[in-house]
Write a protein that binds this DNA or RNA. Structure first.
Lengths: 326, 326
DNA sequence: CGGTTCGCTGCTCATGTGAGCATTGCGGCC
DNA sequence: GGCCGCAATGCTCACATGAGCAGCGAACCG
């Protein structure tokens, strides 16, 4: 009888029949230490597979690897559902959980807006915290089709967190640089931006560099604009600013017309939580984490693996080209 | 935080991060006993799923249930491969293992013949036992196309088991009852049958009641014959004798022309090992076990479940009718 | 042929863990 | 409002388990 088969027998008796290692030893004619060793071996070799099946499960080994490899303060990885349904909900739920358990409770929370942030807001129960003031960190109120979504997100988070919401009453992207300078000079806007810059915690998502982006959906950019950005290396946007795989601004001119805190301000933050999930966002996720735009990442398992998979930078190229082709 | 989610967190920290229950307690703000309880709960609820993945794995809980429900002396259940490939090999291997580990070592072993027995013979290594004499328990030498397969099986087992083989030099089924009586009266044959009746252990398989049976393959029966048997309730054959779902002889006239030990002799045996696996044999397996034709069953997981599934006797009907229809 | 090294075995001991029991807290019921 | 019953909690204690170590044997090399 080979050691392998013995491992299997021991594992069966231990895990399925709940026998003690000593009993198994007698049964198989081995010492209980040998049995213990066989069991360890069985787990190492993957003969015994322990799986945690639950929508709220997490992937701690991946989280640890992300923390270590990228010096993240924290990482939250939820399992990717087999058929992909409900992925955004699960990630949003995890983000809400994280925010809720965050200590010390943030005094002021800077938030971006978008579908992901909406979902997070929904999953934050009333009274999840007390006295959390929320401030919008990038523009985008007026043009959004689903009226006021950007505003309602921030307001909802502030309300359930027992604080005040401060909105940034400005478009996300203006047509001329001068307009941006002008609007930022306005006392109201300037005040909000100051507040945003002083937030103790940032919570934001990232959009993919394709037609499904909220910036396209909201009318700030055309499909053609996005295609051009992709051609120039864009992998996605963070607080309305398009970045390439290295986390650099793709189009300085466009960036100069974008209202909100800068990427460097985000990088300088003590605690910035990025919530990025889904197959379309693998590339942005990699860029965000790789260029230190966040200190905490909330994501799904597949995206986490994609981020960690530095061995295949080719895949990035491949994905980009595929998207260009379509 | 609900108890469910706590269970998940605890399970992750325990099984994936190998933390102690005490550490987890501190981490989640619970006592270590609470953590222990959460972990038990998690396993009961199936949140934690422990699986043993190995071709040689067994299904001990099913084995236990089979033993208890049917008063079997033993049951060996191997996992059914997802795509069904190699199933017969695995079961044969398990049967060989069982035979090899059998104590006391049988002095004389009565065997039937067929594809399954062939496979078992292949998996018995040289010297698996010493002094095991083998005797054929049902006829079938001459007509088999793959020349002498019935004979070689018995001889191979005897050789590797360090004993003598005694063959039953007779067809499995004769054309007339009188011929059977005559051949059984022959001293050679009678002697073998006596030996067969006195065997300390029987090892046999069962065939499905369809065209793929070895009895058809070997030319003893025509497709038409089998169809007729099925119409009369046959679910398969054991040592050449067709039985219905209750383990009764379907066609007494046919049975009367069949050479070999009787089913009652099999039932009276101290130790009789049936090796029956595969989707086509679910019904025979149920009949064999249900009518105490064996004291030990070696099979695959799916067949075991089918045997245990007494809640749906309808499925038997359904399967039979489906087969009749085709 | 002897010495050395390496890997496996069985052991001691400290630690981790589960069964069983007393205690607490909560909700229903008079 | 007070009492009862039940479930959840925290605890004691005995047992199960893994880490670390000494002993042994085999293989390898000089």
């Amino acid at each position: 009888m080979t050691d392998d088969v013995l491992s299997v027998r021991a594992a069966e008796l231990y895990y399925e029949e709940s026998k003690t290692q000593d009993e198994i030893g007698t049964l198989l004619g081995l010492t209980r230490w040998k049995v213990g060793r066989l069991l360890s071996r069985a787990r190492e070799l993957g003969i015994v597979r322990i799986e945690i099946v639950h929508p709220r499960a997490r992937r701690l080994p991946l989280e640890r690897e992300l923390r270590e490899r990228f010096g993240l303060r924290d990482a939250i990885v939820v399992p990717t559902p087999n058929d992909g349904t409900g992925l955004t909900q699960r990630v949003a739920e995890a983000a809400a959980d994280y925010l809720r358990a965050l200590r010390p409770v943030p005094r002021s929370l800077g938030v971006s807006w978008g579908r992901t942030l909406d979902d997070i807001a929904i999953h934050l129960p009333d009274g999840w915290a007390r006295g959390v003031d929320v401030v919008q960190i990038n523009g985008g109120v007026s043009l959004n089709r689903r009226a006021g979504s950007a505003a309602t997100t921030a307001v909802a988070i502030a309300r359930s967190g027992g604080g005040e919401a401060t909105l940034l009453p400005s478009p996300a992207i203006l047509e001329r640089r001068e307009t941006r300078l002008a609007i930022e000079a306005d006392r109201t806007i300037a005040g909000v931006l100051e507040l945003a810059a002083a937030a103790s915690v940032y919570l934001f998502s990232a959009g993919p560099a394709d037609g499904t982006s909220v910036l396209v959906d909201s009318g700030y950019l055309s499909h053609g604009d996005v295609e051009e950005l992709v051609r120039r290396g864009a992998v996605g946007d963070v607080v309305g600013r398009y970045i390439d795989a290295n986390g650099n601004i793709v189009d300085p001119e466009l960036d100069d017309r974008t209202v909100g805190i800068s990427l460097d301000q985000l990088r300088a933050a003590g605690l910035s939580i990025a919530v990025v999930a889904g197959p379309a966002k693998h590339d942005v996720a990699r860029a965000v984490v790789g260029s230190s735009l966040c200190t905490v990442l909330v994501t799904d398992e597949d995206t986490a693996r994609a981020v960690l998979d530095t061995n295949s930078p080719a895949s990035r190229q491949f994905n980009r080209q595929k998207r260009e082709a379509s």
